[in-house]
Design a protein around this nucleic acid. Sequence first.
DNA 1: TTAGCAATAT
DNA 2: TATATTGCTA
Length: 409
Amino acid sequence: MGSVPPELSLDFRPTFVPKTISTFLKEVSLIGNVPDKVSKLDAFVKRLEEEMRKIDAFKRELPLCMLLLNDAIVALKEESVQCMSRNVEPVLEEFIPLKNKKENNQSEEDGALITNKKEKDSNNNNCNNNKDKKNWMSSVQLWNTDDDYSSISHKLDSKRKDGDSSQGCKNRGTATAFTPFKMNLGFAVRKEEKEEIPVHGLTLLTPGIKNLKEESCSTGSRTSCSRAVSSSAPNAQSTFRSVPQPLSHHQQQQQQQQQQTARKQRRCWSPELHRRFVNALQQLGGSQVATPKQIRELMQVDGLTNDEVKSHLQKYRLHTRRLPASTTSPANQSVVVLGSGLWMSQDQYEESSKGSSSQSGSPQGPLQLATNTGGTSNPGGDSMEDDEDAKSESYSWKSHIHKPGKDDV
DNA sequence: TTAGCAATAT
DNA sequence: TATATTGCTA
């Protein structure tokens, strides 16, 4: 019953504690017979190698285990070789020089203490193994960065010498086990994702979000692209530049000018364009309920952007806004649509038509009175297409718009 | 992503 | 001053 060796049993009671390398070597050093010593070393090495094969599948998750195992294997193999070659004991004594002291002082010590003692035991000639072991312990923390890793890897490789290359942990050379750490560094990755786009000699950092906005340029106009770039600049800087880069006053001015030059061209709302705009509004039930996107889709104008429609709609609403007293519902907006697609609020129209002759350039009469009452619009009722004014598209539509306070005062 | 508003530029 | 653009916020 109790004949089963603890290592072979499934007994995980505290009585079975895996030996440390130093403990094992300590035991081995007590063996006087060299062949026995070597065989025991080899057996341990085999077990270590077997262990290594087991965790090989998890080498990414257990890089340090691989490292430790590999170092142990290498050390034990070296020990075995030296035992065989010399056929004498001192090697082991040198490998675990603390043996005697340990026996005198403590029964057990942890690896760090071992390392310290080994360092002090520098009068031994074979200090290679000691250093090796020391590095084995100290290398534990060196996976953090690529630089560190490569340096330690190089260090280990150079120390390991050629004979051990076949035993070396294959992971370590490729650093695959450590790549995930780098990949998961969100900030670092984001930093790399940033693109530096020169805009008139100015480098703008554009985050991906803004790039998405630029993609809308395919459906929008070229001008919207320029807006995307210019608008992204301040955001990009504020978002990603953790370290402020002080600019001189002159540089700031330059930057300002360059941003201004990147400003999109003004969209000229031609009468035809505006007519389509109004038509779309009518179909959508009025300016208060129509949304820029809907309007743009209805207008079916290539290159027209939502921003432009939105802006125009804003202006339109401003002009057609009725006095609060007479406002019943937003949809009940009375809009005077002039012949060439011009518009003004009904208030404005009434005021301007009732007396002011100052509007000498006023269009040829009220060509269309479109009253939007909720959804009861007449999409096809834009007879303005047939108006006289429709042929006068050269008119500056601005001149037809009622200017409150100018004509009526 | 979009709409709306306000500030700013032209 | 009128209009368009841009920035910001919900």
